[in-house]
């Protein structure tokens, strides 16, 4: 038996927490999001009130302060994850960068669902030449590996936080268009759509009231997994030096900076990389769990 995730949030949560893997993922994601909201708000308020130090009130060290006396210190009681070449505390920098990765992944995935969902529903519902055109555009985007397309877009629209976000959205919506088109096609053939049409409901209302609620669950299950993919890709952009403008720390950029300290000072590159892995893994575990619930692979 399968359950509708959105209609039964409490039951869904219970099932997810019963499985150790998805429970682990859920805990890490919650920590990541809650921390990102707190730290992100502090940073925004700090910037607006011209007290940037508010951004590191909760952190063990100022993540931006250069201290060459403490350069490349190994992990210790004082610096749990060590320091980088500039003597900046790595733990503080990882925590300081969390809201960036969180906001990028959330904005990207939800924008992609909005754009791709609408186009996919229209393509699937109306069919004909509309479907052909949307389908070809989707194919054109999906024929190129995401990262390559991102590099092409970056060179056109430039690098930085907002530019990367726009480029990621452009690359990310087609998969949701394809996903929601397939769902819509399946839903369209059911009787309740026919009866809605017979009762005189317009296309727009049918799409919103009947198609959308029925197609969104599988899309959300995929999206959960996808937050991790966006974080991985954004970190790769950061690694290539085009995700965000320095000196703001970003996880991928930290790994790339640490690369120059290899092999001696391995912690400068490895710890930020591990954090990316753990967060991406958590999203994958919860996404897998949701998928299992949706297709009814779980007994409860």
């Amino acid at each position: 038996m399968s359950i509708a995730v959105l209609e039964n949030p409490r039951l869904t949560l219970k099932v997810l927490l019963r499985n150790p893997a998805s429970a682990f993922g859920l805990i890490i994601i919650t920590l990541f999001i809650v921390w990102s909201i707190i730290e992100g708000s502090l940073q925004v308020v700090g910037t607006l009130t011209r007290h940037p130090s508010l951004g590191w009130v909760l952190l063990p060290y100022n993540p931006l302060a250069v201290n060459l006396m403490a350069s490349n210190e190994p992990p210790s009681i004082h610096h749990l994850l060590g320091t980088n070449a500039e003597g900046q505390d790595i733990l503080s920098r990882i925590l300081y960068a969390a809201p960036i990765d969180a906001s990028v992944s959330i904005v990207t995935v939800f924008s992609a669902i909005a754009i791709g969902g609408v186009l996919g529903m229209i393509a699937g519902y109306y069919g004909g030449w509309i479907d052909e055109v949307i389908g070809r555009v989707t194919d054109a985007f999906l024929s190129i590996p995401g990262l390559i397309l991102l590099l092409a877009l970056t060179i056109l629209i430039g690098s930085g936080y907002f530019q990367s976000m726009i480029a990621l959205i452009i690359v990310w919506w087609p998969i949701y268009a394809r996903l929601s088109r397939a769902q819509t096609l399946e839903i369209k053939s059911r009787y309740f759509i026919d009866s809605a049409r017979l009762s005189g409901l317009g296309d727009f209302l049918i799409l919103i009231k009947h198609v959308f609620p029925n197609m969104i669950d599988p899309v959300l299950a995929y999206a959960t997994l996808d937050f991790g993919n966006v974080i991985l890709t954004y970190a790769t952009l950061g690694f290539l030096g085009i995700g965000i403008k320095p000196p703001t720390p970003e996880w991928g950029e930290m790994v790339s900076a640490g690369l120059e300290e290899l092999p001696g000072y391995w912690w400068t590159a490895i710890f930020p990389g591990l954090v990316i892995t753990i967060v991406a893994l958590s999203f994958a575990l919860v996404g897998d769990g949701l998928q299992d619930i949706l297709v009814g692979r779980i007994n409860y």
């Binding site: 790994v255 092999p263 990389g273 893994l281």
Partner: peptide, 23 residues
């Protein structure tokens, strides 16, 4: 496979480089 899948490609490469080439 879930762990290697969730690893950024650059981390996998760095780990291999560290262990097998440098160490």
């Amino acid at each position: 496979y879930l762990v290697t899948w969730s690893m950024p490609p650059f981390l996998v490469a760095i780990l291999l480089q560290l262990l097998i080439a440098y160490d």
